[in-house]
Simulated assay, not measured.
Amino acid sequence: MLRTLVVAAVGAAGAVAATRGLYATAVLAALIAVWTAALNLVDTRPQRPVPPPPVPVSPGEEERRRLTAYLDLSPAPLVALDDGRLHVVNRAARHLLGANDRVVDPPEGLVAALSDTRPGRTATIDIGRDTNVRSFALATGDLALAGRMTRIGALIDIDAELKGAEAAALRDLVQVLSHEIVNALTPIASLAETAVAMLDDPDPALPQVRDAILTVARRAASLHRFGESYRALAKLPAPAPERLSVTPFVSDLEALFVTRWPTIAFSTDLREAPAHMHADPDQLTAAIWAVLQNAAEALHDTPDPSVTLSIRAQVGQTLVTMTDNGPGIPVGNQADIFRPFFTTKKEGSGVGLALARQILRGHNGDLTLAHSSAGATRFESMVPSIAAG
């Protein structure tokens, strides 16, 4: 258009110049007209549209875009409750609730849960329809915007977490059961074989045979009850404390240990022991046996191996100490020995000490590694006690 206007203007100027005798000017105007027309004929390519200059972005808008990108990366749906109206905040919330900004038809109970759940607390809410219902944990926080308080909510899908936890719990249960059953049956079988061998003697010591068989019967019954509780509840059952006589309790443990590891010197120290403890006999047996077994397995290369079980009365509680003269637990492993399934043994499962601690804590007591060095490793456990009577 500009070139056309130039040609027209130059033509008019040439005509005026020619009528007034200005021939040089007329010639110059004619040349300009010819040149402009030639350019129009030569440059016939379509012209690309010139992009508009970029619109400058304010620092505040740039920061808002950056924050939006960050929020969209969150896998947890984020929502905002402002003056009773529910809005989605990030991509995960838009996908879950099917809205781009305001949620016109929010899921039942979500607005009420957001209003009622104070910051720092959580609630559980189900979102979905028909068979596609998912459970979410709702965590909230308050944000002051433009002089108004806005409640922010994060929805954490807990269905996948629950399924994973259930699978892990089942796996842990199977490993704990197999560990405890196999390790408890081994000394029982050994003690039963000893009783059979004693009966083969031409003149059997019947009182000793009777004691051995009674120990086998008690431990088998204890193991049966312990396994039934696990199977029924799918978890370590709550202890059923009772008044437990210390001397026969320790005698059973000693008989089992000596039968299982006859080459390891086993001694007991009951000089300061109370007459009774307040504990679940089956669970406490499993806990102490797990520590004794851990000690015995650490002594396989130790000359003159020995294990000592000591029980001492204290104010309101009983201290049970198990000591061995093995190589000790490396410093780097001491913080992990109570972690489930941690083991440095080729055939170990790593559940014995974890189970023992869990049992003792269930009794409002505890199990700790009091000391470990070459030649002296000591575990201490606390059990509530009751007065003898």
Rank of each mutant, 00 (worst) to 15 (best):
R271V: 15
P327H: 11
R118I: 06
R118S: 12
R339K: 15
I158M: 09
R129V: 03
R361V: 01
D43P: 03
L110E: 02
V291D: 13
E63N: 10
G316D: 14
R148N: 00
A26E: 03
L97P: 00
L162I: 10
A195T: 10
P75R: 07
A232S: 14
V57R: 12
I264S: 02
P54I: 12
L214P: 07
I311K: 00
R231Q: 08
E166D: 15
V104S: 07
A169C: 03
V111L: 05
A33S: 15
T263M: 13
V246R: 06
A112F: 11
S381V: 07
A99S: 09
L97I: 01
T4W: 08
H95C: 09
F338T: 04
Y70N: 06
W35M: 07
I156V: 15
P237T: 12
R225Q: 08
L199D: 07
P53R: 11
S381W: 06
F342G: 10
R118F: 10
L223C: 13
L110Y: 01
A80V: 03
D105S: 15
I288M: 08
D282V: 08
P119V: 06
T117I: 03
D126S: 12
P77V: 09
N90T: 02
P330R: 11
S267M: 10
N333G: 11
V16A: 14
A15H: 14
A112C: 08
L22V: 05
T344N: 12
Q314L: 08
A374L: 11
V10D: 05
